[in-house]
């Protein structure tokens, strides 16, 4: 079983990202579970959402404390939230930032990867909503799910133009984090 924790701020679509990830994993033929860190969320406040992916039915109902992967939607969270908390030593932390992984100085043995998801979102979608973009980066960095499955999930959730733009942004982030493309 692989466990993913998504850090964001209320309004950034962390729960939607966790949900889309679970739909994409299901597309790949895996069992999945997505849920928010239940709370009285307010726009802008730090929030978390979780996804589990497994080859077997998922019965565990606790929150995620020792994730394999962490996705950080907003680098300003690093000042107040310990995003590396409990992450596996061989795990990966993906941060949306213009900075390099080294400059973030995260106290972890896990691999830190960065992607300028905000630029991708502005260039392709036209608004600074990065949740779906980061799922493309997640697919590229981890290989846990097919990027096509994420694109399929987003097209199903947002049919038409919006889904298409998001699918393109997902593809861009996928290639960026794999070093197969650069920002224009």
């Amino acid at each position: 079983m692989k466990e993913i924790r998504i850090h964001g701020r209320g309004g950034q679509g962390s729960v939607t990202a966790a949900e889309l990830l679970s739909v994409a994993a299901f597309e790949d033929g895996k069992f999945s579970q997505a849920f928010p860190a239940f709370g009285v969320e307010r726009r802008g406040a730090p929030v978390q959402a979780f996804t589990r992916i497994s080859n077997n039915p998922i019965r565990l109902r606790s929150q995620i404390y020792t994730p394999d992967y962490v996705i950080v939607q907003d680098a300003t969270l690093l000042e107040t939230v310990d995003v590396a908390s409990g992450i596996q030593d061989d795990g990966i932390i993906i941060v949306n930032t213009t900075e390099t992984p080294e400059s973030l100085k995260l106290n972890t043995k896990a691999r830190v990867m960065t992607v300028d998801a905000t630029k991708v979102a502005m260039d392709i979608i036209g608004i600074p909503i990065v949740n779906t973009v980061l799922l493309g980066a997640f697919a590229g960095a981890t290989g846990e799910i097919n990027v096509e499955s994420i694109q399929h999930a987003i097209r199903a959730r947002f049919p038409g133009k919006v889904g298409e733009k998001n699918a393109n942004a997902i593809q861009k982030a996928y290639k960026l984090i794999r070093g197969e493309e650069k920002h224009e």
């Binding site: 949900e19 999945s32 579970q33 849920f35 928010p36």
Partner: peptide, 8 residues
């Protein structure tokens, strides 16, 4: 735990 979880 069950009302807000997404699962197949």
């Amino acid at each position: 735990i069950l009302s807000h979880v997404y699962e197949p």
